[in-house]
Design a binder for these strands. Structure first.
Length: 776
DNA sequence: TGATCCCGCCAACGT
DNA sequence: ACGTTGGCGGGATCA
């Protein structure tokens, strides 16, 4: 299968959209980077120009940019001439590469010019890094920079070694929603405020250090670090791709984007961004070098985002002077939409067609991951497992046909134009919102009720509410031309539905490091967050305040740009639809299979309230887990996946986790536990969780460790906000079930179902344990 | 000069 | 052992 692996150029040419470009003259050896290739190379200036032109959108490009382009162009031409004619000594050198020409931004434009914004579903929009590097005549290293950022937006996803799949902007709106949500959860707005405040303060007294420390303390709490936010469609892949280490560009990029999405003026200065990002990573020292490095990276990211026209550079004038900053010029992010969409989609859901495989996948998706909502954090070790699984999957999938991209198509329809979409469904949305709101409120206020709801829902549960209420209504049709759901999406939507506000599902993986961090803070940290969790309201308030500040600070000037956009109202995700639960039910029914059940639960959980704070690692859309399968999957793999998912979702883990996190030290349980917590996000889900967790726990030997005490768990969870205040989960599986479970039966079922998977999971866990962290 | 940020060393990983 | 990824920061360019 792996035919793909090394994508040689040959192939490349064929697939690429562009194709034309150049004759491959050189020895392509993939890897060998042709370092300084003289201008003479392959890429024809013309082609570049073309690309550039096409790339540059009319207005968006600021004049400066235009200038650049023109310059570039001219330069290119010149270079060309030189080349063509003959290179005469030095001159050509000069002409060659002005720094600008080599800029990442320009390169990114070229890169983007190669692919359509909204690629048709399945086309082979796949990207071969080597090819691209060659064609664009740059070192591969640079391509990585671009791709990493694109990946953070889910515009591309990695398929395999050297290969990426191009999704274009189909997933963009979803991604942004998810990012916004996470950003809110992380209280980024507040963090920004704090930083700004400090700055002011600093102005007075220099004593920056002190302040920093303060900041740290503050920040530390807030800094949650989330690693990577994944979308439902592309989760795993990404996960695999990003190994633990990838905490940088990809994640940084997402965080950076989040800052824009949660800022009212939508203007973010590099300085602030850098500070926040640094804070998250390591609160410790803010040394200059680190700061500087961060800034450098941010420039890299900003260049790519600028090329995508998501942001544009501006200068904020403050008392101190001008500071470089960027303003969001991308689409507004409407939290609600997704829900609607999802709902809609879900409606559509009925298995799409396509082929067995596709349908299968979808189904599975529905079943399993369904809803996407499940979020969870992953411990590194888990990640490993996941990776291996993924890899397998990948291999399997790798086949050309790989449907992989699935999601893209679908999404696009849906998400592509959030605004529009939103409008259409608006009404429905409202309705939903209302419902969701109610639900939310209920949850918030009446945890118990929430619990009840949750519990039941997961399993059997026919919740009182109208399941898809909104969903049916509409739009889905619009969005998705294909009756069938696009694989990814189709499946996804259903999944997503459950989620609350944003509806975006995502999973967060924790980094080991993070885990530590968390641990460290835990006490204080946890506390703070808690409130937040529910906090949407609070957030809003904060945000307002922040905004003011921001404005004052000077961003304003820029702000002037377009104050218009005020997102304020939207900020809150509040919306959520319970539909999800219903869906779950449906799905579950349909599937009945064990897995499904679990998933449902998780879905339910999905409420977004989530915990914001946690340091998370990676967000993954659960939904997909499934998709990998297809024919390709071996049962084993599936099982593995399932298990993972279960783990993830399954409350058990989650339940455990929270506790762990807070008490990791004591327990010695690694991040692993924590991870689940993240997942826990939705309070609702929590209820469901416990049951599963039990199984999981049991399976895992860790149990002892985990078992901390149910009280601890509860405490943790509550604080975290995962669980509604009133609710309690027992660490102990048994116990947990009791309280929550309204449906013991279900539980049992689930557990049964789980068994197989559990085994796997347990195996995995054991492996993990073996690996060592569990030493304690 | 400060803002940008290219370049490519080299480590972490994967195979 | 070798190839792929990509963190990182020196130092060149630009404004």
């Amino acid at each position: 299968r792996s035919v793909l692996k090394t994508p040689l150029k040959q192939a490349a040419t064929s697939h690429l959209v562009l194709t034309e470009i150049q004759p491959a003259c050189q020895p392509l050896t993939t890897p060998p980077k042709p370092k300084e290739v003289l201008p003479a190379d392959p890429w024809t200036p013309t082609s570049n120009l073309k690309m550039l032109i096409s790339a540059a959108s009319p207005e968006i490009r600021s004049r400066e940019q235009r200038r650049e382009l023109s310059n570039t162009t001219s330069e290119v031409l010149q270079a060309k001439h030189c080349l063509q004619e003959h290179l005469s000594g030095d001159e050509y050198e000069k002409s060659q590469p002005s720094r600008k020409e080599k800029s990442l931004g320009l390169l990114c434009h070229k890169f983007l010019a190669r692919y359509p914004d909204y690629p048709s579903t399945a086309e082979n929009n796949y990207i071969c890094l080597d090819e691209v590097a060659e064609e664009l005549n740059v070192e591969r290293r640079r391509i990585y920079d671009i791709v990493n950022v694109l990946e953070s937006l889910h515009m591309v996803s990695r398929l395999a070694k050297n290969r990426y799949a191009w999704h274009g902007r189909h997933n963009l709106s979803k991604t942004l929603q998810a990012l916004k949500k996470v950003g809110e959860e992380n209280k980024y707005t507040q963090q920004i405020q704090m930083i700004k405040k400090r700055e002011y303060e600093h102005e007075f007294d220099f004593d920056g250090e002190r302040q920093e420390e303060m900041a740290r303390s503050f920040g530390s709490n807030e800094h949650s670090e989330m690693s990577f936010v994944e979308l439902p469609g592309m989760e795993f892949r990404a996960a695999s791709v990003n190994s633990r280490k990838d905490k940088s560009l990809r994640v940084m990029s997402q965080k950076f984007v989040m800052l824009f999405l949660v800022s009212t003026p939508q203007i973010v200065s590099l300085e602030v961004a850098a500070k926040i990002l640094i804070g998250e990573d390591q609160l410790e020292d803010l040394d200059k070098s680190k700061f500087k490095t961060k800034i450098r990276r941010l420039y890299d990211i900003a260049n790519v985002l600028s090329s995508l026209e998501l942001i544009k550079k501006v200068h904020v004038t403050e008392e101190r002077g001008r500071k470089p900053a960027f303003k969001w010029t991308g689409p507004e992010v409407l939290p609600d939409i997704q829900d609607t969409k999802l709902a809609t989609t879900s409606t559509t859901c009925p298995p799409p067609i396509s082929e067995s495989i596709t349908s299968k996948e979808q189904c599975s998706k529905n079943l399993f991951p369904s809803r996407g909502r499940q979020n969870f954090t992953r411990h590194p070790s888990l990640i490993k497992l996941v990776k291996s699984i993924e890899n397998d999957r990948r291999k399997i999938q790798s086949a050309p046909t790989s449907p992989v991209k699935i999601s893209a198509g679908t999404d696009q329809n849906l998400s592509a134009f959030p605004g529009k979409m939103a409008q259409v469904p608006a009404i429905a949305k409202h309705q939903l919102e209302g419902q969701s709101m109610k639900a939310k409120e209920m949850k918030m206020k009446l945890p118990r009720s929430a619990l009840e709801c949750n519990l039941p829902s997961p399993e059997v549960v026919p919740k009182p509410e109208p399941p898809c209420t909104a969903a049916p209504s509409q739009p889905s049709a619009l969005t998705q031309p294909l009756g069938v759901c696009s694989p990814s999406q189709g499946s996804a939507p259903p999944v997503m539905l459950p989620h609350t506000h944003s509806g975006v599902s995502y999973a967060i993986y924790l980094h080991p490091s993070q885990a530590h961090t968390v641990t460290t803070y835990s006490p204080s940290f946890m506390l703070q967050p808690l409130p937040c969790a529910n906090v949407t309201g609070i957030k809003n308030i904060n945000s307002k305040v922040l905004n003011k500040i921001t404005t004052e600070e000077g961003d304003n000037q820029i702000a002037a740009d377009d104050p218009t956009k005020s997102l304020t109202a939207k900020e809150r995700p509040t919306i959520k639809s319970e539909t999800s639960s219903q869906r779950c039910l449906k799905r579950s029914q349909a599937l009945q299979e064990n897995h499904l059940i679990k998933r449902c639960r998780s879905d339910e959980e999905g409420l977004d309230t989530s915990l914001t704070f946690f340091p998370s690692g990676y967000l993954i859309p659960l939904t997909q887990c499934t998709h990998g399968n297809k024919a390709g999957f071996s049962d084993k793999e599936k099982a593995g996946i399932c298990s993972l998912q279960h783990t993830t979702y399954s409350s058990p883990i989650a339940g455990v986790i929270p506790v762990t996190a807070s008490e990791l030290k004591a327990v010695n349980i690694p991040a692993f536990h924590i991870t689940p917590l993240n997942i826990m996000l939705s309070p609702t889900s929590i209820a469901a969780g416990p049951v599963l967790s039990n199984s999981c726990l049991n399976s895992s030997n860790t149990s002892s460790a985990q078992n901390p005490s149910s009280s601890v768990l509860n405490f943790t969870l509550q604080h975290v906000g995962l669980i509604p205040a009133g609710v309690q989960v027992s660490a102990n599986p048994v116990l947990q079930q009791v309280p929550l479970s309204s449906q013991p039966e279900n539980v049992s079922q689930s557990s049964e179902n789980m068994n197989l998977q559990e085994e796997k999971v347990s195996q995995n866990i054991s492996q993990l344990l073996d690996s060592g962290w569990l030493s304690g």
